[in-house]
């Protein structure tokens, strides 16, 4: 399933990017280029071929790890992305880790104490959390913790201290939505008959939640965590821009501004592949949590 989707994704992205107006050959050669040399390069790079042929060539190269060369720096796209990728990985995984760590306990407690002050406060914060744009949250955190308190650096990547603000910025929206999902699926689960069966055989309140409810409630939560990851990758573009974090997101924005098409294409494809891989992991995780799904695979 992954492979046809990936083929589709790369084609779609390639097609969209190929809509970019302007002459790539002229771009590469810069201002001083002659009409003649532009024409030559166009021929050489295959820009005159139909999109589908260009795509096929691109894919052929992609399979060997070649994503083309940057129009603006002349460096290898794959090399540049490979250099930046660990940084984006670090940022997004810290963020999803923070989000899961905070959201699941809060979601569970909120559900078990529905309508309590804790629950109401938690839900208000969660709703505000999903309504805050990450780039603004980032700016606010910079103003508070970096410019005023001086606890963390406001930009760049220099050790764990510089990771904290961007990771939290990126984590907020995901934390909020995973909390909401955990709470509502928990509320749904505790109404199920099997929870009554568990109570009726004398299982303590704590164990009813821990052993019987939580695992069932995690099933929808895991789905949302997978989807959130996609949103997180999108958010990384903004967060990396705000914090000057040297990841793929910032590379992509810079490349768009420089009209560096191969670089933009490479970034989007890497993001899409990363998202698909995460969804694959989520599917596998499912089978561990839910025996009904495992049965379907066998």
């Amino acid at each position: 399933m992954l492979i046809p989707v990936m083929l589709g994704v790369t084609f779609l992205v390639y097609f969209i990017i190929s809509l970019t107006p302007g002459d790539a050959a002229a771009m590469i050669l810069g201002n001083g280029a002659t009409e003649e040399s532009i024409k030559e390069l166009r021929e050489e790079m295959g820009f005159n071929d139909p999109t589908i042929v260009q795509y096929a060539n691109y894919m052929k190269d992609l399979l060997t790890g070649d994503m083309g060369t940057s129009y603006s720096t002349g460096k290898s796209v794959a090399g540049e992305i490979g250099q930046r990728f660990p940084n984006t990985f670090k940022l997004t995984f810290s963020a999803i880790f923070i989000a899961i760590l905070i959201s699941i306990p809060i979601g569970v407690i909120s559900a078990t104490k529905q309508y309590s002050i804790f629950d109401n406060a938690g839900m208000i914060f969660a709703l505000i959390g999903i309504s805050m744009p990450s780039f603004w949250t980032g700016l606010m955190l910079i103003i508070a913790f970096s410019l005023n308190l001086g606890w963390f650096p406001s930009s760049g990547m220099d050790g764990i201290r510089s990771l904290i603000l961007p990771a939290f910025t990126l984590a907020i929206a995901s934390t909020a939505s995973i909390t909401r999902t955990t709470r509502s699926s928990m509320l749904e689960v505790v109404r199920q008959d099997y929870i009554n069966t568990a109570k009726a055989k004398g299982v303590s309140k704590k164990d009813v939640i821990r052993k019987h409810a939580l695992r069932n409630a995690l099933i929808p939560a895991v789905t949302v965590i997978g989807l959130e990851f996609g949103i997180l990758l999108g958010g990384a573009v903004l967060t990396e821009t705000v914090f000057s974090w040297p990841g793929i997101g910032r590379l992509m924005v810079e490349s768009i501004q420089r009209k560096d098409t191969p670089m933009v294409l490479g970034c989007v494809i890497v993001f899409a592949v990363a998202f698909s891989v995460v969804n694959l992991i989520v599917d596998i995780l499912y089978a561990y949590i839910d025996p009904r799904i495992k049965a379907n695979y066998n």
Binding site: V5, M6, V9, I16, I17, I231, F271, A272, F275
Partner: peptide, 24 residues
Amino acid sequence: MRVLDVILAIPAILLAITIVAALG
């Protein structure tokens, strides 16, 4: 649905960014 799955495989905001980047 299969075609839409392909679009869904790209995070929405990234897709929007890509489209605007191409169209201007």
